[in-house]
Design a protein around this nucleic acid. Structure first.
Lengths: 343, 343
DNA sequence: AATAACCACGAAAACGTTTTCGCTAATTCC
DNA sequence: GGAATTAGCGAAAACGTTTTCGTGGTTATT
């Protein structure tokens, strides 16, 4: 089954490939007669242009790259989802790679994508990425980059983020409004900027509501696992019966805390309210269901692609490219691990 | 920053592009001197071959397509993970698309991938796909296809599957071995082949252990949701106190059943044992943790790519392509929603 | 009737790489 | 020393598309 090309159509019709190409694209200098003939034949032969040839000629692939720290993760798979949907709408396909939180892999993968001549790259920085040369290098090469979720001020490009500080503030505020006065914060590992910001939000909320900040109420954990939550819960159950609310930097940690607290006979939310972060799937199936902050991955994914698409259009039109930083709104999702607001 | 090409390297060195190309690929008819010179310059100029030109010339893209029914799903995101990892190992990149369980979208997406000249396509059939012309059509065109998880006998290609019947058998057998005698089965919607097979396995296990099959013990649900599990649990709690085990076709359903049963005062596993299916993430965080069947998505993803890669190699070597059907082993994951085996 | 305008099309170059084939000059062989 | 081999390189075509520029012929303008 030989591939059917412009040349062959031209040969059959006894005209030149140039005319066929132009007829198919409705160039004004081709007569209606020829256009109709060409289109009919192309249709009946089921002609599809060879994308390599097009890309080679037009210097664009209509493919973008997406680098994700971890695919198997509710938030990130929602991002993928959003990116792919938005991209297909505009005729772009998406090559996905995961950095596994490794700086080296992140570099390699950016290279692979560049070598495949993708039209642009969407990246969420790995937790172990400490310098940004590799990102800035490709931006200077003229390949548009948009950063999402895990970004850096040291990279000059468009970004899609959530306001972790505000979200942390809202989460804490909600606990306060539902009657909590002694609120613990589980911040997880010290380093990532997101957890730092959420912690700042927590402090702000306390301050604005005239509650004292007590650093003994802040728990660090090595990872963000379910089991790490157990340890914190044990500590609370043993020594800190004054605590009446917990704001955790992650749903999974929060769930661990909640499960273990209940095993220790502490009632949620009657004795202690619990607030998670991200609105993962699991929050809907815990007992009680977990109140949390919705971090809308799908919407972020869509928006991230949209920003890239804007740049792509600007480049194509020869306009100067403008960078944009878009903040996606989070919101408190009240469920049953917190009390109701007394009104 | 002008792109650096073979021609330019040739011009700088005062030799022909052909020689440069051959030098970089270690052709035997190029002298060592020239090879060294060419490689050094290419290195220092950071030369990267233009992938479009290569693809156009070599008729291969080193890109494969992956069609997934739903990305945001623990099992399927593990598949993606496996496919991407295995593919990068061999220098292939992966374009992912999701069919959203729609036949129309599945067709469109296969088309998009074909138009991008991917070297092969991995597909899990959407639940609403009822004929396979679109798949068979591209196979006849010579584009290798491998089906995974949701396959069909009507498509002649390599496949990666789990043995749902055997898995259903093992799950039920495990319940029997841990002392259950009146085992209910929640099979979910009637149609999908997977649930049919799991149901057959359930029946087989009963038969082989001389337990009567009672169709009143088989529950259908409209969807596979958490809430659908509630309804079944209500029914059991109200009318079927003789039931001492439940095998659910899905972890989520099982979790719904378990949560609601416990709310009704029924002890898990003391009064009723519960067995899920898939080993999703959530099974590790329920109370009690959910016994289940491990359906290894990552491994399936890897194997699926491997089969495609085999075909690609065969084609390249001019060998005749052979199809293979690989069965990935499942296993019982004993947790705390079932009793221990008395030994 | 001469000039201008316009219509419909094609030739050719370009995108960058790969590979076949042929050529020259140097080496080997008898 | 002549013939045969070999080593090292390049010309050129090919992959399929796009677009600029030009051309020949027709129609409209004075």
């Amino acid at each position: 089954m030989p591939k059917i090309t412009l040349k062959k159509i031209a040969a059959i019709l006894g005209i030149s490939p140039a005319t066929v190409s132009k007829a198919l694209k409705d160039y004004p200098d081709i007569s209606n007669d020829t256009k109709i003939k060409v289109k009919a034949l192309a249709e009946s032969l089921n002609y599809k242009p060879n994308s390599f040839a097009q890309s080679l000629r037009n210097q664009e692939s209509k493919i973008i790259g997406l680098i994700i720290p971890k695919i198997v993760h509710h938030f990130f798979s929602n991002i993928i989802n959003g990116v792919i949907d938005a991209a297909s709408n505009k005729g772009y396909l998406v090559i996905t790679l995961q950095s596994h939180e490794s700086y080296e892999q992140e570099k390699d993968q950016i290279n692979s994508l560049i070598e495949k001549n993708v039209d642009g790259i969407l990246i969420s920085l790995s937790d172990h990425t400490v310098n940004y040369k590799h990102i800035n290098a490709i931006i200077e090469k003229g390949v548009p980059v948009v950063l999402y979720d895990r970004t850096s001020k040291l990279v000059n490009c468009s970004k899609v983020i959530i306001n972790d500080r505000k979200a942390g503030y809202e989460a804490t505020k909600y606990l306060i409004e539902t009657g909590c006065r002694k609120i613990a914060h589980i911040r997880g590992p010290l380093k990532p900027q997101t957890t730092i910001d959420r912690f700042m939000g927590y402090k702000n909320a306390l301050k604005e509501h005239d509650l004292p900040y007590d650093k003994n109420l802040v728990f660090e954990t090595e990872h963000l696992s379910f089991e790490d939550g157990f340890e914190v819960a044990e500590e609370i159950a043993k020594h800190r019966h004054d605590i009446d609310g917990v704001f955790s930097t992650t749903d999974l940690l929060a769930t661990g805390v909640m499960v273990k607290l209940q095993q220790k006979g502490i009632k949620v939310p009657d004795d202690i309210s619990i607030m998670g972060f991200s609105n993962w799937f699991l929050t809907k199936i815990t007992t009680p269901t977990l109140s949390t902050i919705d971090q809308p991955g799908y919407e972020m994914g869509r928006k991230t692609f949209d920003l890239l698409y804007d740049e792509l259009c600007q480049i194509k039109n020869g306009e100067s490219v403008s960078h944009e930083v878009v903040e996606i709104a989070t919101r408190v999702v009240p469920r049953n691990s917190t009390k109701f607001i007394e009104s």
